[in-house]
Write a protein that binds this DNA or RNA. Structure first.
Lengths: 202, 202
DNA sequence: CTGTAAACTTTACAATGTCAAGCAATGAGG
DNA sequence: CCTCATTGCTTGACATTGTAAAGTTTACAG
């Protein structure tokens, strides 16, 4: 309460150059440049210019660091979906297609990060910041589904269908498991496999 | 060419107890009992009763062993889909729903194995047996989609949609990423999110 | 100046995948 | 029967990785 008690025990921010953020940044760069196999705790530390034991003072070990990286990933993920959506025409269907194209773009441009974000065995799912970021990205997609009638009695069935559809398409595409025997054309666009969705008011 | 040249250099089968198959079995059991984190080369070897270096004589290192396990996984996968399909009524839609329920059942009952099978960074995707098994399981799903009209000009768009839809639902479900904020009911059934699919002959 | 707490380093260790060398058994050729 | 080469596996070693303990540095309150 005293005016200038900067209170060193208080975590007033990181001391020098915000190592916590630098470690996450290092992880994102490694994922981007060398893929998920290259993402090790020691590599992140080296890239951030600290010893290999430094991350343990800011994260709960390797799972904690990975969770922080995934959390940042979900923020970039939501931003990508929003960006593509806002360039699309203002009709509900075009906005939804924009969200899905943003989903695909993020997955294809950030393969390692995307894989990380949806791999339960790597992240600490109960982490609060992680959950918040993941749910926020879900909310972006849910919002784009809101104008449409549910496809069944199930509440939120449209969101579940779209979320499953685009996530499956993205996962299979980046995993190279989307077999297309006779044709050798590029991955299909979401508009080619999106079923008709009747609007709510209509 | 001589009648009884059993030709010991020929790989006439495994010598003692078919160690190759035993190692794959050990891997499947470990996945089933202790999850994907417990799947190590040394653990498989120990479970099969051999030294930790034995697998290298039958597989191309750890990726090779994992690929063999995933290959067996795809066979079980196809068998599960077929089994559930054949218990369903004979209408095209019921058969397709059966395939999808088999897909979900396999994913939920073999979480670690399912994750393995679709993780490109673990398997050797160019392996011939692996590709054959993966494509065979795809063919089972494609067959169930065949009676329906394509959802777009894209050839095989129905298969792609169904494959994406069910794979996304399965992946998100086992990853615990299928957020259902207001309701706290179990995972949705495929029939609740499967859109209307007009038949071909119509 | 003293002491304390946070940030970070150094050191050590267990687990893992991989490789090289060696050993044992099996069966062919003399 | 003897030799010997090949296959199947073991032993031992090594680099990499995550983690924990102990030590060091730095900043700052009193």
């Amino acid at each position: 309460m005293t005016q200038d008690t900067k209170a060193h025990p208080a975590p007033k921010a990181q001391n020098r150059g915000d190592l916590k953020a630098r470690l996450v940044k290092a992880g994102l760069d490694i994922l981007d440049e060398d893929g998920i196999e290259a993402l090790t705790l020691r590599a992140c530390a080296a890239r951030a210019g600290v010893s290999h034991a430094a991350p343990a003072h800011h994260f709960d070990g390797m799972p904690g660091l990975v969770t922080a990286i995934a959390t940042e990933g979900y923020r970039l993920f939501a931003a990508t979906m929003i960006e593509v959506r806002d360039r699309a025409p203002a009709t509900p269907r075009d906005r939804l297609i924009g969200i899905c194209r943003g989903y695909m773009r993020f997955a294809e441009e950030n393969t390692g990060l995307f894989t990380l974000m949806f791999n339960t065995s790597l992240t600490i799912d109960r982490d609060a910041a992680f959950q918040a970021a993941a749910r926020a990205s879900y909310a972006v997609l849910a919002e784009a589904c809101a104008p449409f009638r549910p496809v069944s009695q199930e509440p939120r069935s449209t969101e579940t269908m779209i979320w499953s559809l685009i996530h499956g398409l993205a996962s299979l595409t980046i995993a190279g498991r989307l077999f297309r025997p006779d044709v050798d054309l590029p991955s299909p666009d979401i508009a080619d496999i999106l079923p008709d969705l009747p609007l709510k008011a209509g």
